[in-house]
């Protein structure tokens, strides 16, 4: 009976067609339409583009000369590096540590994963209060420990003086748990026999991590890095909640695109196209880097 149902393929389209239609209507069609929109002149978002821009590549030419877009690209580049080091790096460290403890691993899994379930907007408001100028948590602590002069009410304007740090900290903090879970799952797939053999051969902890864990975890790390890079390219909600309108030159490609949606829809479409292109290119680059490593290791 089981074999027969797998051989009979007649039911397959019933499952695939609705899902395909859903993907077509809500992903592929808007995606293609967005590319077309990036060449059109659209007066209001939601209205169809009446005519092509003059010149057709107007939005892309503007983008090259747009200082805010350059700031957004630079900041996004910084965000990508920060997410790779801060999110994937920390997640890897936490995963290695948690996989090496016998008691309390469940507790740490929950603690590290918890920020993921909180909405980005709520986190943004939370960190707004933490970094608040007057009566903010960090400034109060710094005054309490004497780093800031409480008699003159000396305060740090985190959103002006350390804007990128203030923006990236919650973003990194929120997603560490996500990559932590992926890497922990990858670690669970490594056969224990390899560690036992290394232990018998006198291998140290660091040597087992370097020569067993990291090479066998490479695919999981590559997945995490690709997700981190593409995620950094489109990150929007948390930075927008904390730094509305690119306050203190904190534009990211995602936030800059959104800021243009209601005032210049076709330009926003062009930015969205650039985000997708960058995402694809960087994903390919990351995959190439990890594949090169594989060839090197194999040799």
């Amino acid at each position: 009976m089981t074999a027969r149902i797998y051989k009979n393929k007649k039911a397959v389209p019933f499952f695939l067609i609705p899902a395909f239609l859903f993907m077509f209507v809500y992903l592929y069609y808007p995606f293609v339409q967005n590319i077309i929109n990036s060449f059109m002149h659209i007066k209001y978002i939601g209205t169809s583009g009446g005519e092509l821009n003059t010149p057709v590549l107007k939005n892309y030419i503007t983008m090259i000369q747009d200082p805010k877009m350059l700031i957004a690209l630079k900041n996004t580049g910084i965000m990508i590096i920060a997410t790779i080091i801060g999110q994937v790096g920390l997640a890897l460290l936490f995963a290695l540590l948690v996989s090496n403890i016998k008691k309390g691993s469940g507790f740490f899994r929950t603690v590290f994963f918890f920020p993921i379930v909180i909405s980005a907007t709520a986190l943004g408001l939370l960190f707004n209060l933490i970094f608040l100028y007057d009566k903010g948590m960090i400034n109060q602590i710094l005054q309490f420990v004497g780093y800031l002069d409480i008699s003159t009410n000396e305060l740090i304007d985190w959103k002006a003086e350390h804007a990128m740090f203030t923006m990236m900290t919650p973003v990194i903090w929120q997603y560490v748990g996500f990559y932590f879970v992926i890497l922990l799952t990858g670690l669970a797939g490594i056969p224990q026999e390899l560690y036992e053999a290394a232990f018998i051969d006198g291998g140290t902890k660091w040597q087992t991590v370097k020569y067993i864990t990291l090479p066998l975890l490479k695919n999981s790390i590559a997945t995490c890095v690709v997700l981190a890079v593409t995620g950094a390219l489109k990150v929007f909600d948390l930075p927008w909640t904390m730094f509305v309108n690119g306050m203190s030159d904190t534009w990211l490609t995602g936030t800059y695109m959104y800021s243009k949606v209601y005032s210049d829809a076709d330009y926003a479409s062009a930015i969205a196209v650039v985000i997708v292109v960058l995402g694809v290119v960087l994903s390919v680059v990351v995959n190439r880097i990890f594949r090169q490593d594989a060839d090197y290791d194999a040799s």
């Binding site: 009976m1 089981t2 149902i5 009979n8 039911a11 019933f14 499952f15 067609i17 609705p18 899902a19 239609l21 859903f22």
Partner: peptide
Amino acid sequence: MKKATALLLSGMMALSMV
């Protein structure tokens, strides 16, 4: 039985979209 369930599920999925 499984075939019937599969057809029922796919039918429901399509109906839900409609």
